[in-house]
Design a protein around this nucleic acid. Structure first.
Lengths: 352, 352
DNA sequence: CCAGTGCTGATAGACGTCTATCAAAATTTG
DNA sequence: CAAATTTTGATAGACGTCTATCAGCACTGG
């Protein structure tokens, strides 16, 4: 029925050369005539030979060692990312993949550079890093690549750098998506949108806002942007003030973090009053609860599960010197109250 | 630095038994005293031993042979599923996983049973099947399980059966999600929804409708359901007629297939007239185009990419007699014009 | 014709697991 | 206590690849 996949011995036999020569060809070692090289390649083609990666790794006792560098601190989103990587690490044990999950102070390019130099020295097989887009970081990435270590940027890209790929969403796309939903929620009527960001100087937040602006078009007014520093107390104060002073606001788009504060403001609104539509980023415990309780309307999520899976897929491929087939950005996912994924607790209850 | 993962020899040494005994324990062969069994298990625990699956498979020349049984015919959604499996098959070649993608006439329980019996006889390592929920199919699944062959139901579940897991969306959830979006699009105003299905007798379509009904609540009217047999000509005729006769319709929810016909009706509406909101299932070329052109508003997609990935993940785990960690349903994904994923053509252009 | 060079072939051992076999212990049974 | 049975140990060969070594061949240039 299913016949045995061809081995390199089969290839050698078919090419009329010895195993040693065939091996020299596939492993790119010197000392093979052009003629022999060609006939080996022809045999590979003809037999559809694919190297048995498992056997190859076994013979070299290969253990993939990947490093994941995440910002330190307690942001709910990165806690989730960290948890997902930790879970992946234990799942990947049988596949001889070891993930070292490291923390570096956010926005500290100096510390990040030091850490990445250490990883280069440790000769890891690949690195995924959440970095900000600055020249020093780009240089650190280049240093790793110079040592032939693959590098992925995660969540936030460093476009000019030599990273092999970016794993994350396109923030303009995310903003446009929110824009569309804002329009939909207003059903052709005019509206006034309150944008909330961490800081306007933050690349990603600004991109999200501009994407949103692009789509909502001229029928909408945009209130002065609230900069909440991603801190929930500040967000609470500023948004509370904005809503009180500007009763014309029909929708809030929070492009950054600190949304616990936003939710508190919404929760404290007098029951009878018209609640503005609210659009938030990232599915985390408190945003989920707010969506379930109807305090907010939509969560745009960058699917860290998928990001984690892709990071591992890409790093493994790159470590094997195989090609990345697709490197399209992650698509931002829209969650409403009804299509929330099961929580771990639900899943356990269902199973037990 | 990273030290060599423990092997079974290490376990044996630590347990104070021979390799042969340790091997007997881990492979559940008979003839080992309880005491030896216990000390081997203790050593496994202490060393954190995990069997090297690659080496194990190598030693047995193991090739995973999985069968994917899809409905024959030219439905755009299943064409997409088929393509995704075909692509996965070539990608999985180096991992010694062979997928045989088979077609069986849709709704033909007899043919399906025959095919599944053949798979049982061929002793495949796992089967994923798109089946309808009837006793004969359930029996065929049971027959496979009796031979210790894992079975997954795909896209459409057979709840009473002995399938190991279901990979697909919960259709009630999908319907509820659409309900929420319909409400959102109407922004608090009343509306009248035209439901379009293949047939009301189809489980999944009915579930989607009832989910939608649940959420939109009493403020909405529901027009008589159009049954379009999933055939685009019929859908075109019937929906065209319904819209012409019922100008109060503000939204269309098509829970089934044949949407090319629906799109043609919308495209043919006089330019000035108010177009009803339109909600469709499954991202396929023609629905994508309609969304890009603004003829429809939302596509609910069951992410066949994720389904395919899960099928392979689950089948591999089950074939290795490992446990399935999570078997939560796939979450239906909302696509609007702005968060459509890149097409293959886009990706190629970008790369080249 | 000899030395040097470039290419090729043969082969051995390692990786970790599985299967199998045989002999030697340890234990139970009569 | 001897016989039968159960348990254990030792070991060999296979899986497909990688690395390494060594010998032999066909050339080239002098």
């Amino acid at each position: 029925m299913t016949r045995r996949p061809p081995t390199l011995s089969d290839v050698a036999r078919r090419a009329g050369v010895s195993y040693a020569t065939a091996d020299r060809v596939v492993n790119g070692r010197a000392g093979v005539s052009e003629k022999a090289t060609r006939s080996v390649h022809a045999a590979i083609e003809a037999l559809g030979y694919v190297r048995n990666v498992a056997a190859a790794n076994l013979s070299q006792q290969r253990v993939y060692r990947f490093a994941i560098v995440l910002p330190a601190g307690s942001n709910a989103f990165f806690r989730r990312v960290r948890d997902l990587f930790a879970e992946a690490a234990s799942r990947l044990l049988p596949d001889r993949i070891s993930l070292s999950i490291e923390s570096v102070e956010a926005f500290d390019a100096e510390a990040l550079t030091t850490r990445m130099a250490a990883l280069a020295a440790a000769r890891v097989d690949g690195v995924a890093v959440v970095a900000s887009d600055d020249p020093q970081t780009a240089a650190a990435i280049a240093a790793l690549r110079a040592r032939d270590i693959p590098v992925l940027t995660l969540v936030s890209d460093v476009p000019g750098s030599q990273r092999n790929a970016y794993v994350g969403i396109d923030n303009v796309v995310a903003g446009r998506t929110v824009g569309r939903l804002i329009r939909m929620a207003h059903g052709g009527r005019k509206g006034r949108v309150l944008p909330v960001v961490g800081a306007l100087s933050a690349h990603d937040h600004a991109e999200r806002l501009s994407g949103m602006r692009e789509v909502i078009g001229g029928a909408f007014e945009i209130a002065p942007v609230v900069e909440g520093r991603d801190r929930f107390e500040l967000v609470e104060t500023l948004v509370g003030k904005a809503l009180a002073e500007d009763p014309a606001i029909t929708a809030i788009y929070s492009a950054g973090a600190g949304n616990a504060g936003l939710v508190r403001v919404l929760d404290a609104l007098p029951p009878g009053s018209a609640r503005p539509y609210a659009f938030l980023h990232e599915l985390v415990p408190h945003s989920r609860r707010a969506l379930e309780e109807g305090l907010i309307d939509v969560i745009i999520d960058q699917r860290p599960e998928e990001e984690v899976a892709r990071v591992i897929e890409y790093l493994t491929l790159l470590a094997d010197r195989r090609e990345l087939l697709r490197t399209d950005p992650i698509v931002p996912t829209i969650f409403v109250r009804e299509n929330l994924p099961q929580t771990r607790a639900d899943a356990l209850e269902q199973a037990g």
